[in-house]
Design a protein around this nucleic acid. Structure first.
Lengths: 400, 400
DNA sequence: CTTTTAAGTCAATTGTCTTGACTAATTTGT
DNA sequence: ACAAATTAGTCAAGACAATTGACTTAAAAG
C-alpha cells in the first residue's frame, strides 16, 4: 500500500524547451562558424528561415548578437551576417591549486578581460577561503568598473581544482593531493559567498572546456586533453560534451598504474610538473616558477632534458592508452606546463606508439599542442558557465 | 565569391521533435520502472497529466503499451498502470565471431524468441556472407511463422563483430583480429541482403547495450562492461548512452599496453579466451568449446587455475584503470566466458586494487558479474535497433 | 531590360503542450 | 452512514512556437 519506490525517468520537454534549444543551437553555430546570415543559419540548423528570423530578432534585442556589413555572394539579395556580441555575457573563472589561486573574467566569446592571482596560505580552506572570496570580489569589482552592464550579464562562476572528489579519507591525505580542499564544501561556500551560480570541475576538465570553446578542440566532438600541470589528468570531450563520470572524477589518468623500471607506480609520479620540481629540487612555491622552468627548458638544461626523456616514455604510453580507450579525433597536450617545456615534451614523444589512431582517413594530428599557460585552467573554469548557459546539448531539451 | 566552406551546427528542433522526445521518454520510463500509471508518468517526466494522457492514447493505438489491472494506492481514484507490450516491436541481432555466427530475434522488452547459430567457414566474407544471410533468413522466417505481425513490426537488424574498424591495413592482418571481415562493407551488404535498417557495433559495445537494457546496468547512467570473449574489450555506458568514440572503436581496451613479466604486451594476449585456448592447447573451433571450458573450470582444472591466476592480475589492473579513467557507478564482467570460469575469475580478482572507486557513498559493488553466455553479444546487437527505433517517431515506422 | 536567384518578411495555419474546471473512485474521519 | 479529503483521469479552450506559401527586395546573368 505504501509504495514509495522512486520512479526514474528523463524529463520531458515542452515549447519553452524547444525554443531554448533552438536559441542555443544558433548561438553555438555562431561561436563555431563566426558571423552567419539568417539564411545560412536556417540551412545549418535545418530550421525554417522564419523561425531563425524570429529567434535572431529576440537575440538581437537581448544584446547577444548584432548585424555586420552586408555581403554580396553572387546572385540574389546580399546577406546580412550576424555575429556574437562579446559583451553579451560574462563569467568569472576560478582556479584553486596547491599554492596559488587565480581568478579571471571572460566575455561571451572567451576574451579574458581581467586576471588576478594570489598566493594560498598553507592551512587549507580555513585560511584559504577568505583569500579566494577576496580575489573573486576584486575581479568582480573591476569588471563592474570596466563594463557598466557586466553585473547583470554575469552568468556564473566556474571553479576548478585538482581532483579527485569525494573519495575515502586515507588516500586524500596523500601529499600529492589537496585533501583538505577536496573534502571542503567549496561549491556551497562560493555560492553563499558570491550569490552566483557556481560549478566545480577538476583542472583537466576545465582545460578541456577551454580547448573546446576557444582552442584546439573547437568544433570537435571527440577530443581528449592530456593535462600536464602540478598533477596529471585527462579532460574528456565525448560526443560533443565534457564527460565527468558518475562523481566528477572521470579522466584522473594520473592515478593510472604503470610499470616503470620494474616497479609499479602512478603516471602522476613520473610525468607531472610536481615530479619535475622534485627532480630539479626546486621549490614549487617559488613565485616565478613558470618563467624559471620555461627559461631552463628553452636553454635545454640537461636536468630538464633527463626528466623530459623519462616523462616522454610514460606520456607516449598514456597517449596510446587514451587513443585505444576513447577513440578520439585528436589528443591535445595542455595545462600549466610552460610552453618551452611542452613543445620539447611533444617532440620527445615522437614517434608515437602505434595505435588504432593510425587511420588512412585521419585529418588531424594524433597529438597537438593546446593552451599551455598558467591561466588555461581558470579560462576553462570560466568557460563552463557560459557553455552551460548556451550549449544546446547540455541543458538542452529538458524541461524546467 | 564562391564561399563554400561547410557550416557546422547542431540541428534545431520543432514540434514533432518535442513529441518524439516525450514519447521516447515515456517508453524509457516504462522499460525502466515497469508498468506505471499516467499520473506516475506525469510526475516522473514533469509533463502534464493531459500531455501524458494524449501520448499514452497514441502509444496504445500503436500497440506499444496496454493497461493492466487497476491498483488501489490509499486514498483517491485507483490508478491504471500501463506496461510495454512485448509484441510491440521486434529486432534481429547478429553476431559474427572468428569461427561462428549467431542470430536471434528479440521483442520490445528484450525476450529472446529465436536463436540459431552456424559455423563460419574459413575464407572470410567471401564464403561467410551467404552463411550469414541464410541464418538471418531462417530466423526471420521462423519469426514470421510464430508471430503473424512480426514482419511489419521488425524495426531493424543489429550486427556485432570484434573491432577495431577502419584502421590501417597492416595491423588488421594480425592473427588475433578478423582483418578480412573488418575491411568488408558488412553494413551495406546486410542492408542490401535483408532490406532492413542495419547497425554495426563491436562485440563489447553490444554486450553493454544488452546489460543496459535488461542486465546489470539496467537504469544506470555510468557503467563499463569489461567484455571477456575471444578478445577483450570494454563497452561504455557514459551519461546514459553507449559511447562509441569518433570511429566506433572506443573501449578497445584489449589493445592497451601493459608490462608483465618484464615485457610489454597487450591485455588481450594475457586475459582473453583466445589466450586461454592457447594456454590449454585446445582448438577454438571445437563445437562444444563452451561447455568444455565450463566443465573444466567447474572441476577446478589446474591448467585453468594457472591461467585464471595470471589473467586475474591483469584484469585487476584493467578494472583499476577503468575506474580511474571513467569513474563509473560499477564495472560489469560480461561476455562469452562460461559462467564457471567467470565466477572464478571474479573471485581471483579479489581484493581489487585501491582506486577512486573506494567511496564512502558507494551503493553498488565495484565489480559484478553480468551476462556470460554465448548469446549475450547477439542479444545486445538486437537491443540496439530497438533502442534506436524510439528516437524518430514510431508511428511513421508503423505505416500500413 | 528582362529573367533568374537568393535573402528576408508578412500573415495565416498547424502541431503540441498547458491551463483550469470538471468527473470519478476511493479512503478517512466523525 | 455520510461528508470531506484525496488522487486519477478527462474535457475544452488557450497559449506557444514552429511551419507554410505568397510576397518584397536586391543583386547577377543573359
Amino acid at each position: 500500500m505504501n509504495d514509495i519506490r522512486p520512479i526514474r525517468a528523463t524529463s520531458g520537454t515542452n515549447h519553452e524547451g524547444t525554443s531554448a534549444h533552438n536559441r542555443r543551437v544558433i548561438i553555438d553555430a555562431l561561436r563555431l562558424n563566426g558571423a552567419l546570415s539568417r539564411a545560412d543559419l536556417a540551412r545549418a540548423t535545418r530550421l525554417t528561415k522564419q523561425t531563425v528570423s524570429n529567434i535572431m530578432e529576440e537575440l538581437e534585442n537581448d544584446g547577444l548578437v548584432t548585424s555586420r556589413e552586408t555581403v554580396r555572394r553572387g546572385r540574389g539579395q546580399p546577406s546580412t551576417p550576424y555575429g556574437l556580441v562579446p559583451e553579451g555575457a560574462f563569467a568569472i573563472g576560478l582556479q584553486i591549486d596547491r599554492h596559488i589561486t587565480r581568478a579571471i573574467a571572460v566575455d561571451l566569446v572567451g576574451n579574458v578581460l581581467i586576471r588576478k592571482e594570489a598566493n594560498l596560505p598553507a592551512g587549507g580552506p580555513a585560511t584559504g577561503t577568505p583569500v579566494v572570496l577576496q580575489l573573486i570580489g576584486n575581479v568582480r569589482t573591476e569588471l563592474r568598473q570596466r563594463v557598466a552592464q557586466a553585473e547583470k550579464r554575469l552568468v556564473g562562476l566556474g571553479a576548478a581544482m585538482p581532483g579527485p572528489f569525494g573519495i575515502e579519507q586515507d588516500s586524500a591525505d596523500n601529499p600529492w593531493m589537496m585533501g583538505a580542499w577536496q573534502r571542503f564544501p567549496l561549491l556551497e561556500t562560493l555560492s553563499a559567498g558570491t550569490g552566483l551560480n557556481v560549478t566545480l570541475q577538476n583542472d583537466a576538465a576545465a582545460c578541456a572546456t577551454a580547448e573546446r570553446m576557444v582552442g584546439a578542440a573547437h568544433g570537435l566532438d571527440h577530443a581528449v586533453c592530456l593535462y600536464v600541470g602540478y598533477g596529471i589528468g585527462a579532460g574528456l570531450i565525448l560526443g560533443g560534451e565534457l564527460y565527468s563520470g558518475a562523481h566528477g572524477n572521470a579522466g584522473e589518468i594520473g592515478m593510472a598504474l604503470l610499470t616503470a623500471g620494474g616497479q609499479q607506480t602512478q603516471l602522476e609520479h613520473r610525468a607531472s610538473l610536481a615530479s619535475l620540481y622534485d627532480h630539479l629540487g626546486v621549490d614549487p612555491m617559488a613565485p616565478d616558477i613558470y618563467s624559471l622552468i620555461n627559461d631552463r627548458a628553452a636553454a635545454d638544461d640537461p636536468d630538464i632534458l633527463t626528466w623530459i626523456e623519462r616523462a616522454a616514455i610514460d606520456l607516449r604510453w598514456s597517449v596510446q592508452l587514451i587513443e585505444t580507450i576513447f577513440d578520439p579525433q585528436t589528443v591535445i597536450l595542455c595545462g600549466g606546463a610552460p610552453v618551452a617545456l611542452a613543445t620539447r615534451l611533444i617532440a620527445a614523444m615522437q614517434p608515437l606508439l602505434p595505435s588504432n589512431a593510425d587511420r588512412p582517413d585521419r585529418l588531424l594530428p594524433r597529438l597537438q599542442l593546446g593552451m599551455t599557460d598558467p591561466w588555461a585552467v581558470a579560462r576553462g573554469a570560466a568557460a563552463e558557465p557560459i557553455g552551460h548557459a548556451f550549449d544546446p546539448r547540455f541543458s538542452a531539451i529538458l524541461k524546467s
